[in-house]
Design a binder for these strands. Sequence first.
RNA 1: GCCGGCGUGGCGCAACUGGCAGCGCACUCGACUUGUAAUCGAGCGGUUAGGGGUUCGAAUCCCCUCGCCGGCUCCA
Length: 658
Amino acid sequence: MPTVQIVLPGNAHSGERAVTTGTTAAELFDANRSVIAARVDGTLRDLAYELRDGDSVEPVTIDSADGLAIVRHSAAHVLAQAVQTLFPEAHLGIGPPITDGFYYDFGVDRPFTPEDLEALEKEMRRIIRDGQRFSRRVVTDDQARSELAHEPFKLELIGLKGAAGVDAETGVEVGAGELTIYDNLDAKSGETCWKDLCRGPHVPSTRHIPVFKLMRTAAAYWRGSEKNPQLQRVYGTAWDSKEALKNHLTMLAEAEKRDHRRLGVELDLFSIPEEIGSGLAVFHPRGGVVRKVLEDYSRRRHEEGGYSFVYTPHATKGQLFEISGHLDWYADAMYPPMELDEGQKYYLKPMNCPMHNLIYRARGRSYRELPLRLFEFGTVYRYEKSGVVHGLTRARGFTQDDAHIYCTLEQMPGELDSLLTFVLNLLRDYGLSDFYLELSTRDPQKSVGTDEEWAEATETLRQAASKQGLDLVLDPGGAAFYGPKISVQAKDAIGRTWQMSTIQVDFQLPQLFDLEYQAADGTRKRPVMIHRALFGSIERFFAVLLEHYAGAFPPWLAPVQVVGIPITDEHVPYLRDVAERLRARGVRVDVDASDDRMQKKIRTAQKQKVPFMLLAGDADATAGAVSFRYRNGEQRNGIPVTDAIDEIVTAIDNRIQV
RNA sequence: GCCGGCGUGGCGCAACUGGCAGCGCACUCGACUUGUAAUCGAGCGGUUAGGGGUUCGAAUCCCCUCGCCGGCUCCA
């Protein structure tokens, strides 16, 4: 019997092996039911793949990242089949796997309703129970066109095959090489129940989709362009086990509980009054304290870091943003101008940098002054489109902790290096610890400057980034028009990633503003400018920390750090005295002297997520002590007041979480 | 900006198929004085987002505006 040689990498059963010609990957991994696909020479394949001489074959299990993506992709197919069963007139868009799930876009006459979703889930369960086989078939372009003649979007994709600019999601459908169609075959008769143009791979049969759930519907532009028609998108999630799905849903519920918009109301931190306008927030006293502490600490660190503090106005003549180029690039996203003084146009500022440049330019500069680091909490206004405004994270007015560093070309690498370290350490002080870096590079369509300048700036940034020993991922074409950037991405307590700080190198604005300094040799030279925001937006950073801590801020940030809870009214004066001593040490403390019962006061303080509750009754008062209750329900009784104060002050000073 | 959904006291919600706008929390007042997550009672509070329309009658049906939510697009 003819055989082929294959390689099985890995430790347990590694090594070369001869198998009969015609052996499939499925037969190879027959023993392990959790294997749903194979990786052959690095490429993911269906289990039905016939092994060829020299193939290096690895199993792909259902609980691996690749395995889950395949399950989700297959679930998207089942969804599409269900849609076309219930809505035969629906046209197919694309249906890729995404983080935690999948979606599929459809061209339909009317949007899907929640009832439709239920019916679709039911139909999907039927298809999965049927155990239809996913069967791959290579087709020519002409064959595909004739089989999919009634699918206008798919025809468009066939036309795009292999063309430049096909995005990753579209690529799921057509890939780069040969075209393939996946037939869904009835388990018994082998009849084709449904088919879709798809690169695959897929699970062997619909029964290999253990658990899924349809989540929501939404409109989405065909191929991601707002010039194109909108399709109806159905989002779903799929997992390798019921438990995994349950964990996912629990995570979503947890995220909802932490939503900063919700906590902002519950904890009385901020609001976004309709009367002021969409995306324009006010901070209430409690939120104001948190914000003030955030800012004060940042100020102190910047002072220590050699920054100079500057202040600039909120409005300016349009000329400033003509010089900077912002009006060319971002006019649509700026508040429209006000006309004053006989037609003079004034804009609310969307950026601080041009104003900082004017400070630099206010007089001649010497190389001895560089690096010059200008820092400001500068409030900017951007006219965000109505559909994107979102709580504090996407607002129309927000405050950047904005710094611009002017330095010589030679100083730039060292400056970037220390800057990144400074930024990361400061973020760590606020309680974020899990980071990776992203390097955004030039988009030739949306940028100015020479190739050499961009190459140099990008390389310098890359080197500074790699020194930090963090993961560095590329974001091709993601840079702003004037220079490449590094952004710090931070993971929060429930694993979500937020873009935090950005550091951008800029050769352009110094030119546009004709910035100069006099060098040691007496010549005039152009400084390099580094843009840097640490929080990005203070409002947004506030929201991220609020969600990260689920409202339970560490004591140094908590709006109210201590609440005194008397057992009876008689103990109020005693606690007021303790509170006075705490206040003298700078602690934010309240005594709950309301006529609620003690238990109710505990509940109130607990719901407000106050880090320390200090209780006192007769026993404590006679002993000159207090009893702690912490947010986790723990208690420590009879602590001498001096010790209690020290414990609290120490926790605050060291910025530890309790 | 686009698609869909939703706007009822400060907050969370109820009110059939068009028929007296109600509940809980919060708040105010009174009583109670209690050792680790809700004491009892009374009271205040709404032109049902705003405007227009249909109807004998609109929170409810229709139209417009504003706002919010989920996505898409965008994010210097």
